[in-house]
């Protein structure tokens, strides 16, 4: 059994009256790395985030962050947080940015709890959130069998039959979490399984997984909870009905950019366009990590981009 001790709080007051050198939106790998780099440059830094760790908190195991052959996502993020808390960085946690505006040479950030902060520069590192299938009954059955977090909810499906929708690494990671408690795990993929072979092999070894390849979810059915899903062939008309109590949707993620839509230039897939220096289309506004157009959404890449964004922000501030 694991016991996660919270990182020690070093209280740095969060002040609405002051103008921060840099406001970092998000505290995942990109945001926290940016915060450390900014603080080392003696920038007055504020981090605003719903949580500390972002999507990495949901990673049961990380095997591709150099220096650690294996570490849980939670433990890795705790190490990040400990490092952040070594510096005088103000942390506004359990809050969320709802609006980002630029006025003259200042940025204004408004949060869900009604606070207003001002900064000379901003780094957006708000990451991504799970994409939905957009099929009938999906929305109504969220929390009633439809889940986007296998790490959180898998233990609730002990002895039950469930389905995981998706074919990439997150989907197969969810499958492997679920095989620990569920009776049977259907893995539904529109086309071939794209996950790393090591994850697929682990799923196969469990003896609990049935791959249903070449099918898409047509609808989720059930009264006040999930009872079954209806699948339709992607290259044909054949339909399949699977009796399941849980549907875990792992079909990728969408960037968290709603608060910045009117300010930053976005790509067709709603990612913030950045150049090699993490600069956006707006002077003084930088972005890093999974929210940006930088390809490959990996923890190690997000952390590196966070460092770059902070150094670019520093350069911007000394030249401004």
């Amino acid at each position: 059994m694991e016991f996660i001790v919270p990182a020690e709080l070093k209280a740095v007051p969060v002040e609405e009256a002051k103008c921060y050198d840099v406001i970092i939106i998000g505290a995942g790998p990109a945001g926290m790395t940016a915060a450390v780099y900014a603080a080392r440059k003696k920038l007055d830094t504020l981090v605003i985030s719903k949580d500390v760790g972002g999507q990495t908190l949901l990673a049961p195991g990380v095997e591709t962050y150099m220096g650690y052959q294996y570490i849980t996502g939670a433990e890795l993020m705790r190490k990040f947080e400990e490092q952040v808390r070594q510096f005088p960085i103000a942390l506004e946690i359990n809050d969320e940015v709802v609006k980002l505006l630029r006025d003259e040479n200042r940025f204004t950030v408004r949060t869900a709890t009604g606070k207003k902060f001002t900064g000379r520069s901003v780094i957006i590192a708000s990451g991504r959130r799970a994409r939905s299938l957009n099929v009938p009954r999906e929305r109504e059955l969220i929390g009633r069998g439809v889940s986007y977090c296998a790490t959180c909810d898998a233990p609730l499906f002990g002895g039950l039959d469930v389905a995981v929708v998706g074919s990439g690494n997150p989907a197969l990671t969810a499958v492997n979490e679920l095989t620990k408690c569920a009776r049977k795990v259907y893995t539904i993929a529109r086309s071939a399984i794209k996950a790393d072979a090591v994850l697929r092999e682990k799923a196969e070894r469990s003896g609990k997984v049935e791959f249903v390849v070449g099918y898409a979810v047509k609808e989720i059915q059930g009264g006040d909870k999930v009872e079954r899903i209806v699948l339709k062939q992607t290259a044909g008309d054949k339909e399949l009905v699977l009796d399941v109590r849980g549907v875990f949707i792992e079909i990728g993620a969408t960037p968290n950019v709603a608060f910045a839509k009117e300010l930053a230039e976005l790509s067709e897939s709603n990612e913030i366009r950045v150049d090699c220096d993490c600069k956006t289309s707006v002077a003084g506004l930088f972005a890093a990590g999974d929210v940006t157009t930088v390809p490959e959404k990996q923890i190690i890449i997000a952390a590196g981009e966070g460092a770059k964004a902070a150094l670019s922000a520093y350069q911007y501030l000394i030249e401004a």
Binding site: E2, L58, D153, A154
Partner: peptide, 10 residues
């Protein structure tokens, strides 16, 4: 809650 849920302690 579950032990693996990072949003639960809040």
């Amino acid at each position: 809650v579950t032990h693996t849920c990072p949003y639960c302690p809040e």
